[in-house]
Amino acid sequence: MKKDSILVERTFNAPIDKVWRALTAHTEMKKWYFNIEKFEPKVGFKFDFMGGSDAGPQYLHLCEITEAKENEKLAHTWRYDNYPGNSLVCWQLMDKGEQTLVRLTHTDVHTLAEGGADFAKENFIEGWNYIVHTNLKNHLEGKSD
């Protein structure tokens, strides 16, 4: 893996179809990820959303699905409106029966760094770890479902 890539892995106590739904149904995504108004796991589908640190500025994320294979893989571009760079986020799912291994990779992160300190690799590492190990975990394994 390239040194500018980020890798986050976690095995969830949830079947693969539930994890796939969490990654692809915009009503589910709003509960743990970002407020995405419309989403379709189809190659070429474009979506956007606002996001940033709680205390800092919010940025318009512009994304396009590049790969979608149900219950296996979802990949999309990740860039920011009016900022340099373009990266790729890939979610891979591996069926472990009643559990699912999720492997998130974010590649070409270095292309975003020119946008300023908010786009430093360390911030993406922190953000993805929080999203996967806290938000997604609570959503999939929480008792509120």
Score class of each variant (00 low, 15 high):
139 H>W: 15
40 E>G: 01
50 M>E: 06
50 M>R: 07
64 E>F: 12
65 I>P: 10
109 V>W: 09
66 T>M: 06
35 N>S: 07
129 N>Q: 14
59 Y>K: 02
133 H>R: 13
73 K>Q: 12
48 D>Y: 00
51 G>H: 01
30 K>E: 00
90 C>I: 15
92 Q>D: 12
38 K>I: 13
53 S>N: 11
138 N>I: 05
46 K>Y: 03
59 Y>V: 06
119 F>L: 13
55 A>I: 10
32 W>T: 10
127 G>R: 13
94 M>G: 04
25 A>S: 11
84 P>C: 04
116 G>D: 03
104 L>Q: 07
123 N>Q: 11
123 N>D: 07
29 M>V: 00
74 L>V: 02
77 T>I: 01
53 S>T: 14
67 E>S: 14
73 K>D: 02
86 N>H: 05
34 F>K: 11
87 S>K: 11
87 S>R: 12
80 Y>H: 06
33 Y>R: 00
21 R>Y: 07
42 K>L: 10
30 K>Q: 05
73 K>E: 06
105 T>H: 08
49 F>D: 01
110 H>D: 14
112 L>F: 07
119 F>H: 05
138 N>A: 07
74 L>D: 04
55 A>Q: 13
101 L>N: 05
123 N>G: 15
77 T>S: 10
58 Q>E: 06
35 N>K: 13
126 E>P: 01
